[in-house]
Design a protein around this nucleic acid. Structure first.
Lengths: 159, 159
DNA sequence: GTTCGTGCAAACCTTTTGCAATAGT
DNA sequence: ACTATTGCAAAAGGTTTGCACGAAC
């Protein structure tokens, strides 16, 4: 079976870019931290552990490139930094985020919640949707002392 | 009838802040550009036309204050700047945005589209929602050559 | 040899901060 | 007088860019 890295390599090649060692190291970091929401600096520091010679500018350039190829999504939670989030393979929509205003945790919702809403927007506003960003700010189950919803129901894992 | 400025003044006072001339000038600019999505710099330049002595730092401090009081919402569309959007009076939810990737226009949807989605999130993820951000990226009616949906149906105005 | 990519440092841009001066009560 | 607020300039923080060097075909 073809690995994820291989497929990204092909994506780069078909856009006439190379998978250089620096780019590969950067992609590997992203794959190893798929659940996190790393800033460019975060990625830089993690890449540096394995490839100490890499420069911050290269990381920025690689992340920009991956964003362009839709391998990652660039998101902004309103603090001063951009974060980079690996897109689910084959996902035609960008996942949603739950930001806890107490502990700062960011959880992801992979399930598509916007199907009906998008129909309404396309029809009532004559707007052809290409992408979306949906973020909820509130209090997570941990800070409320409620059970982990992943255990209570497994909607997320079924997707 | 009490003006919008008066009500904002009261909001400031009840949080022990004053409506200084600089703050008033800033609020007036926001009111006069309610449909736009001004950056701090945009606001600064507009305020300067009427009150040339104002400093950029004051504008930033005022916008921060108004955000804290929930008079405006600070939004970030992914370009490097924060934008400030007057909240509808009495609105308990933050309106949504349609960003056209061709012409750059930003349209607003005041109607609440997320009622059902929020119920699902609160129930299935045990997440207590306090606020949300929903933005669609795509192609607006103008760039598609379609009719103005405001005229075709008046959902927005009825709200 | 030409092209693409990299590392470094400088530049850039937005936003924040320190501080002395000012305004309002 | 006392405290909040302002303006200015400097600093900070994140991101981009110019450029000479290096790697790959």
């Amino acid at each position: 079976m073809e690995s994820r890295i291989e497929r990204i390599k092909k994506q780069l090649h078909s856009a006439s870019y190379k998978l250089t060692p620096q780019r590969e190291a950067t992609v590997r970091v992203l794959l190893e931290h798929e659940d996190d929401h790393l800033s460019a600096e975060d990625v830089y520091l993690l890449v540096k552990e394995k490839s100490p010679e890499i420069g911050l500018a290269t990381v920025y350039r690689t992340l920009e490139l991956l964003t362009e190829l839709k391998v990652v999504d660039k998101i902004n939670f309103g603090d001063g930094v951009s974060r980079y989030d690996l897109r689910q393979e084959g996902a035609d929509h960008f996942h949603h985020h739950l930001i806890c205003i107490e502990c700062g945790t960011v959880d992801e919702i992979q399930e598509d919640l916007l199907g009906d809403v998008e129909k309404v927007v396309e029809h009532d506003w004559n707007f052809k949707i290409k992408d979306h960003r949906l973020t909820f700010h509130g209090i997570c189950w941990r800070c409320q002392g409620k059970p982990d919803p992943k255990k209570a129901n497994d909607k997320r894992d079924k997707e």
